[in-house]
Design a binder for these strands. Structure first.
Length: 425
DNA sequence: TCTGGGGTCCTTCAGCTC
DNA sequence: TCTGGAGCTGAAGGACCC
């Protein structure tokens, strides 16, 4: 689901450039979620297909290239996408299917090199320096990967080959769909400098506005600008970062595994919700979802934060740090609820609420949880573990708090997990 | 046009300790 | 005893990415 903003140049033709020293590969699946859907339903091949929740507040998760020709792209509001392309086939996302395909594709990558850094379900960086002797030069390795993914998964991908992660990523975006592009070590600046500033990693809408005000439109313009000018306009970190990227400098290596720093869940209501009792129920649901994932991954966290979004889209967060890390749903819920109650916004319509747990540590390393009373927490921990066992055996929604089963919840969007119990079911 | 859900990182500010 | 600065941490907001 790449959102790189480099205009695709189409698959390159002819011999690839000199790939000496270009040991970083960026592999990006083409329109990944949509491709998985088309593979599952071959009658959709060649049609504009949009993956996303069709509800009034949904956005496009992915779109086939046929749909993109109408101007549809990911993150676009579904209502607008339907207007642009009324004939598009809309498919609800099936993340379990995408995750299964993603695992298979990542296994292909790992058969080439252990140095695979997944960025998301549909893309990864590979450091193939150690595989060159066995498999050939980097560009040939890229072609082997593309052929194997197509052969084994029947979907296409694009590969960027370069000396650094950032250039490899731009290269894969440049050769989409179904292409491979090598940016030779001595051709990095020729490749980079004509690109628009928005191509750089870290330049979004706001940063692009600032750069435009400075009269900077291309990466070459940034390279020609004094680093002090950039840091005073964008801050020390972003300014220095952009200046380095504009000169092709990117010291980051391919790191196979980065531990998570936070886990959370959020929900946009189908219609705004003002009732505090309904908000409490949603916070409970989100706390349960979050802590179940924490326990599944073996993490506990010290800081609980909530996010609320009002009808006008302004977003506010509140956080509280606990005396000890926790993965206990009732403790996370109690903290989230206290944060909401002390905001003084009871009765104000909310568009979204979210719960997140930060400052993660391995669950086994946590000291005894004393907040809210040790005995209380200990009991809830056992209850959580019993629920986890029931879910593993009977599936999602097998056991739920009574408040979530009884409470009528008219604003709940139609995106509940499969198998989740609903009032009246 | 009207904006999902999962995250990371950076900046700013306030409070605390030394 | 008071004051100011440095350094740290936590909280909050914002930008960005996929």
């Amino acid at each position: 689901v790449s959102r790189g903003r480099v205009a695709p140049a189409g698959p390159p033709t002819g011999a690839p450039g000199d790939d000496t020293g270009c040991t970083v590969l960026h592999v990006d699946m083409d329109a990944f979620y949509a491709s998985v859907e088309v593979r599952r339903r071959p009658e959709l091949r060649g049609l504009p297909v949009i993956v996303g929740h069709p509800g009034a507040r949904g956005v496009v998760t992915a779109a086939t290239y046929e749909a993109r020709r109408y101007g549809v792209h990911s993150a676009m509001p579904m209502t607008r996408a339907r207007r642009l392309c009324p004939d598009a086939v809309v498919v609800e996302p099936d993340f379990e299917a995408y995750a299964a395909t993603s695992r298979a594709v990542m296994e292909v990558f790992r058969s080439v090199t252990p140095l695979v850094e997944p960025i998301s379900m549909d893309e990864a960086f590979l450091d193939v320096a150690g595989a060159v002797r066995r498999l050939g030069p980097p560009a040939r390795i890229g072609e082997q990967i593309r052929a194997r993914v197509l052969d084994e998964q029947r979907i296409t991908c694009s590969v960027g080959v370069a000396t650094t992660k950032f250039v490899a990523k731009l290269a894969s975006a440049r050769c989409k769909p179904d292409g491979l592009l090598v940016v030779p070590a001595d051709g990095v600046l020729d490749f980079l400098h004509p690109l628009p500033v928005g191509a750089l990693w870290g330049v979004g809408e706001k940063t692009e506005e600032v750069l435009t005000r400075l009269g900077l439109r291309t990466v070459g313009d940034i390279a020609a600008t004094d680093a002090d000018v950039l840091t005073s306009a964008l801050g020390p970190a972003a300014g220095a970062h952009l200046h380095a990227l504009a000169w092709g400098r990117d010291e980051r290596s391919v790191v196979p595994h980065e531990p998570e720093k936070s886990v959370g869940a959020e929900e946009t209501f189908a219609t705004d919700v003002a009732d505090p009792a309904a908000i409490h129920r949603e916070l409970l649901r989100l706390a349960e979802r979050t802590t179940a994932r924490l326990r599944d991954a073996g993490w506990a966290g010290r800081t609980v934060s909530i996010k609320v979004r009002f009808a006008d889209f302004t977003t506010v967060t509140r956080a509280r740090t606990l005396p000890a890390p926790t993965d206990v749903s009732q403790l996370v819920y109690a903290t989230a609820r206290a944060l909401y109650d002390t905001m003084g916004i009871a009765g104000r319509p909310l568009r979204l609420v979210g719960v997140r747990v930060e400052q993660l540590v391995p669950a086994g390393a946590q000291p005894e949880q004393l907040a809210f009373g040790a005995a209380e927490t200990g009991g809830w921990r056992e209850a959580d573990q019993a629920v986890d066992r029931a879910v593993r055996r009977f599936g999602k929604g097998a056991v739920r708090p009574a408040t979530l089963v009884r409470g009528a919840d008219p604003a709940r969007p139609p995106s509940a997990a499969p198998g989740e119990l609903r009032p009246g079911e």
